[in-house]
Amino acid sequence: MNILVLMKMVPDIVEELEIAPDGKSLDVEAVRPIVSERDDHALEQALLLKDKSGGTVTVLAIESRDVDEVLFTALAKGADRAIKVAAGEAIFTAAEAAALLARVLPAVPNLMPVQLVVTGCQAIDDLDGVVAPALAERLKLPYLGIVTGVEAEADGSRAIVFKEYAGGTRGRYSVCLPAVLGVQAAPKPPRYVPVAKVRAAMKSRTLECVEAPAQEERSLLEIVSMTKPQAAGRAEMLEGSPEEVASKVAEILSSRGLA
């Protein structure tokens, strides 16, 4: 099975996020970009399918800060090709990203058709849409999201796809290929690759670059302002050394009959 994995960078939210001077966007200069966590799972799912039944894995990302290292890491983990799309503009809404991907994929040499396009599902920065289903609509392919497992059916025409519901229950679906799948978690934790192997990939492998012309995509949403959440129902913060705070907490618990 030939599989395409789409990856994108999002701000690391463990760092402080700042609002840009316009008051309605994120200060992108101040963020530390990391690959969207779900995309690592999407890649892992693709590599597991390749390990099991062969085929190729291609990773593709739109050019953005620090994306090269993510693509080389994917190569070091076992991806066959890595493609970087140069798109002029740096930031995309979900609608723009889907439109751009739908236009650029057919233009990549020797790529399409693939049997599966896998993406991460629900990145933390989606305001105006969800890229994978929007891409599926544009490519006229079926889509299933919140996926936690994929198995190819023997004749290659369909895949068994597990979709997550609440309380650990999963739905088993049969999906006609080719398809777009939004992966929530791979059946196994994403594999680890030592830095040395990533460095080696940087020396021995290359990223393929393709150009995508800029475009106009109208959004029906207008961000009026961006703010940090108001501390409305904020916790009472306890101060002191870990031991001091621990003894305060123990006292609170004890007053409620919990300790």
Binding site: A235, M237, P242, E243, V245, A246, S254
Partner: peptide, 27 residues
Amino acid sequence: FSVAHYGYAGDVLEFLPALTAAVKARK
């Protein structure tokens, strides 16, 4: 911290053993 009733801006690796000790001491 906006859903919690009480919060502590600190390291769990230090706090958890400290709370375990404090709870045991009360008992």
